[in-house]
C-alpha cells in the first residue's frame, strides 16, 4: 500500500513539474507548481517527516504560490513566451545537461544499489523541538533575523523611491 502511494505521489510530482515547464500561461504554471509542491509534501510524509511536510505545505503552498500568483496577476503577463528561436548556446547547454542526466541515471543503475531507507524510529516532534531550542538555537535566531532583514528589503525594493528615476 505504501509503495503504491509512493508511485502515485512520485508520478504526480514529476508530471506537475513537467506542467510547470510546458505551460505557456504563467497562471497555469503556478497551479502546476502548487500540485508539485503538494506531491513533494506527500513524499515527505512517506519518509515519516510529518512536521517537515506540514511546514513545507504551509510555507510553499500557502505563501510562495500565492506570492507567485499575486505577482503574475499584478504584472499581467498573459502572453507567455514569444516563439523565437533559441540561441545556439542554449542548445549546447541543453545537450550537455541531457548528457549529464543520462550519465547520472546510468551510474545510478550501475552502482546505485543503496540499501532501502526508513530506519525504525522516526524522530518525533518533541525531539525536533528539543534540538531546535538547544543545539540549533543560534541558527534559529539568525534565521529569524534573516527573515526580518528580508522583510525590510522587500519593503525598500517595492517602495517607489524618488531617486530611482536617475537610474533610467
Amino acid at each position: 500500500m505504501a509503495d503504491f502511494l509512493f508511485y502515485l505521489f512520485a508520478f504526480l510530482t514529476v508530471l506537475a513539474a513537467m506542467g510547470v515547464v510546458v505551460n505557456r500561461n504563467a497562471v497555469n504554471a503556478a497551479m502546476c507548481l502548487l500540485l508539485s509542491f503538494a506531491g513533494v509534501a506527500a513524499l515527505f510524509t512517506m519518509l515519516d517527516s510529518g512536521l517537515l511536510a506540514f511546514v513545507f505545505l504551509l510555507v510553499y503552498a500557502g505563501a510562495v504560490v500565492v506570492l507567485f500568483l499575486f505577482v503574475v496577476m499584478l504584472l499581467d503577463v498573459q502572453g507567455g513566451d514569444p516563439r523565437k528561436p533559441y540561441q545556439p548556446i542554449t542548445a549546447a547547454a541543453a545537450g550537455v545537461a541531457l548528457a549529464l542526466l543520462t550519465t547520472g541515471l546510468l551510474s545510478l543503475a550501475e552502482r546505485g544499489r543503496l540499501p532501502g531507507s526508513v530506519p525504525a524510529a522516526a524522530p518525533g516532534f518533541k525531539e525536533f523541538a528539543a534540538r531546535l531550542f538547544t543545539t540549533y538555537l543560534l541558527p534559529v535566531e539568525v534565521t529569524g533575523f534573516l527573515l526580518l532583514i528580508a522583510m525590510l528589503g522587500v519593503v525598500v525594493l517595492s517602495k517607489r523611491l524618488e531617486t530611482r528615476g536617475a537610474v533610467k
Binding site: 510530482t13 514529476v14 513524499l43 541515471l105 545510478l108 540499501p115 532501502g116 531507507s117
Partner: peptide, 14 residues
Amino acid sequence: EAGLNHYLLVSALL
C-alpha cells in the same frame, strides 16, 4: 519496495 534509490530518482528527475 520504495527505498532510498527511488526517492533519489524522483529528486533527480525533479
